[in-house]
Design a binder for these strands. Sequence first.
DNA 1: CTGATGACTGATA
DNA 2: CTATCAGCCATCA
Length: 119
Amino acid sequence: MANDTKAGTAEARAAAIRRAVRAVKRGTFTSYGEIARRAGLPGRARLVGQVLRESSDHRLPWHRITGAQGRIAFPAGSASAHKQLRLLAAEGVKIRGNRALAAPAPGAKRSLDALLWKF
DNA sequence: CTGATGACTGATA
DNA sequence: CTATCAGCCATCA
């Protein structure tokens, strides 16, 4: 089989992306661009979405993948968006509207005191 | 081949 | 906050 031994096939890219997705820890979320970067494919955020779509779900924590700044890629109110938000919330991720919040809300200065004093 | 589309992103207005 | 644009890449009509 005179096959291509060159790295960079669609299969290899998909595998790398799936690896990166699987590496996302529970209770956290990562953007498409970040996944692409971790998979060694900078600038191919769209490809991540493509692979995720093809994979549908297969022990892939697809719900931990959000758009930039935690924004959900699905239209707000859609079934998929709602499901993703629900899954994220179930893992302890704060949700606000169509967004997943990774960091504490602004005003952490006050929360800092609260943390120090174990509020 | 061309053009449209899409689980994207960052900049700009 | 929303809207638009340019870039980026794979897939499809």
